Each structure stands twice: as C-alpha cells, then as structure tokens.
Computed example of a mutant assay.
Amino acid sequence: MTGADEGASTHRGVAAAAQRGIAGFETPTWFRTLGVGAWLTLGIAGVLALVLFLIALVAEVAIPLAISAVLAAILVPLADRLERWRVPRWLGATLVLIIGIWLVVATVAVVVSAITSQSDEIWARIQGSIQRVDNDSAPLDVTSDELIGAAHEVVRLLTSGVLGSLFSSASGFVVGTVLGIFMLLFLLKDWAQITGWTSAHLGLPPEVGQNILDGTVSAFRGYAAGLSLIGAANAVVVAIGAVVLGVPLVGTIALVSFITSYVPYLGAFVAGAFAVLIAFGAGGLGVAIAMLAIVLLANNTIQNLVEPFAFGTRLRLHPLVVLLTVTTGTMLFGVMGAILAAPLTSAGVNAYHQLRGVNGYV
C-alpha cells in the first residue's frame, strides 16, 4: 500500500468516526424545545410584522373599521333589544346609529362649550402660572412672553400630533368618519351574520371560535363600562377637591377628567396636569401641591378601590400589565393603541384560556 493510499484510508477512518460521534450525540430536550420555540417565535413575529405593515398601508380603512367594531360591540345589545320589541333590524340599527352620533356630538359640544366659554379665564390662569414662574425665577434668561409663546407652540404641537396619529389630513378625517358611520351601520344590522361567519373561519371548532369571539366582545363592553365608572369616580373626587381648595373652573376640570379617563394613564396625566396648572395659577404652589395630591389620590387609591367592581373578573389585569400594554400600544399606534391595548390584551388572555381546553392547540 502506497503512502497516498494510507493517507486516504486514514481520512476515511476519521470521517467515519466523526459521523458516528455526531450520530451518537443527543442534544438535551430543553435545548431542542428552546430552539423550536425560538424559530416559532421568529416566524410569528415575522407574520405579525407583515400584518402590521399591511394594516399601515390601509390605515384610512383599518382605523374606521377598528373604531366601528368597538362601537358595534358596545351598541349591539341596544339594537337587539329593539329587535325583541319587534322593531325591524335595519330600522333598529339606524335608530341606534342616530342615537350614538347624537351622543358623540353632544359630548363634544359640551366639552368644547365648557372650555371655550371660559377660555379667557383658563388662559388667564395659565398666564398667571407662567408669570409666577417668571417672578420666582429671576435669574432665568427668558421672559413670561416667551414662555407664553412656547406654551402656545406646545399646545399646537400636541393637538396636531394627536389628530395626526389618527388621520393624516382633514379630508382623511372626513372620509374616515363617513366610512366609519357606514361600517357601523352594517355591523349593527348584520352583527349575528358577521360574527357567526368570523367564528366559523378561525380555524377552530365552531363553539370554541364563538366563545373566543364572545369573550372579546365582552372584554370591550366591560372595559368601556369600567372606564366610564372609573372616570366618573375620578371626576367626582377631583371636583370635590377643587371645591374645597377654592380652585375655579370646577365643572371644566371634572369634565376633562371624565373624558380623558377613556385613555388609560395618559388621559389621567393630561387631566391631572390641567387641574394642577389651574390650581397653581389660582392659588400658588401650596394649592397646586394639594391639588396634585388629590389627583394622585383619585387616580391611584380611589381607582384601585373602584377598579375591581368596574371591570369585574372578565377584564382583571394587573396594573403593571395595563401600564406596559398601554405604553407599548401608544408608542406603536398612538392614541388608538392607548385605547385598544388593554381590552385586546384581556381578549388575548381569554382566548388563551379557551384554547387551553382544546386538545392540540395549547
């Protein structure tokens, strides 16, 4: 045997030994599970990213559809009640839609009227707050006029940012509103058919799909009712505190506290900042600190006491979970994310519990 043949034989022997070693090597079970889970996680994340990208491309349709679906979930029981009273479904849906539009317009009108009717006094209080800062901090190189101008700019940027997160232009707002109204009408009219078709095409047993869909609808209904109750409680506490402290614009402060309560955490921050600023302009630093304490009391202690009764067992999420989901939703999707994050999380938890009882799913 030549040297070349001996070298080739040696290489073949080494290769065979390596193959036998690889074949005999067994990875730990936990390691294989972790690897499969990692690839599945990457695949799910990729699918979600693609879905979110496609939704962003049709945001002018997706946003009105999301708002209409949430409103339909809340208003459908009223349409069902009218149908039980032998009112034709199309007529009942139309009546509910008209009532809903009237309530929205009336609420917006009340808020705008309450603020604009006292806009001079509100701005005078804000100017008083800025003037106090200017007088108490003489070494600063800015004047009260510059601070007021900066406040105008901040308000303008905040307003444009909030509206811009929903619609890119005024025409988009009008088109989205009209489209949303028609979507809501069809959802109210054909709710049973739409939800039945959806539950049957979730890739799950029909009864499981229907239970998941019912749980999602219940989450949104319970969330809306809970936010209304919590907002009313916060508004009452803040209003009583404003009356005791002698802070003006009590009605406006209470109304802003109630309306902004529908945006978790962020709404409380905006309403609290508004109340504290008015209190500072009216009575100085001591009154502002007292008002801040009342706002914190309303949005923490009182809210924690009311929350279990407001949300019940269907939407019981840990406050940290709500905070994280709302913050993440706000960062990704703006105001819509802040509003929908918590109920969607609750709906996801309900869906998980439903799937745990189905063999082969969880």
Score class of each variant (00 low, 15 high):
2 T>L: 08
3 G>W: 05
8 A>K: 05
11 H>A: 12
12 R>E: 11
18 A>K: 12
23 A>S: 08
25 F>V: 04
38 A>D: 01
47 V>S: 03
54 L>F: 11
56 A>F: 02
59 A>N: 01
62 A>L: 08
63 I>N: 04
68 S>W: 04
70 V>L: 09
76 V>T: 14
89 R>W: 07
89 R>H: 05
90 W>T: 13
91 L>T: 15
92 G>N: 06
95 L>Q: 05
96 V>R: 07
100 G>P: 02
102 W>C: 11
109 A>I: 09
110 V>S: 10
114 A>G: 15
121 E>K: 09
122 I>S: 02
129 S>I: 04
144 S>W: 09
145 D>E: 05
147 L>H: 07
147 L>A: 13
164 G>R: 01
172 G>Y: 07
175 V>Q: 03
183 M>I: 14
189 K>S: 03
204 L>M: 01
210 Q>T: 15
216 T>Y: 03
216 T>N: 01
234 N>I: 12
240 I>T: 11
241 G>D: 14
247 V>H: 04
269 F>N: 04
273 A>M: 10
277 L>S: 12
285 L>A: 13
286 G>C: 01
287 V>W: 03
290 A>K: 01
290 A>V: 05
291 M>I: 06
296 L>I: 15
302 I>K: 00
303 Q>D: 00
305 L>H: 07
305 L>R: 13
306 V>L: 01
314 R>A: 10
320 L>F: 06
346 S>A: 14
353 H>Q: 14
353 H>K: 14
356 R>E: 12
357 G>P: 00
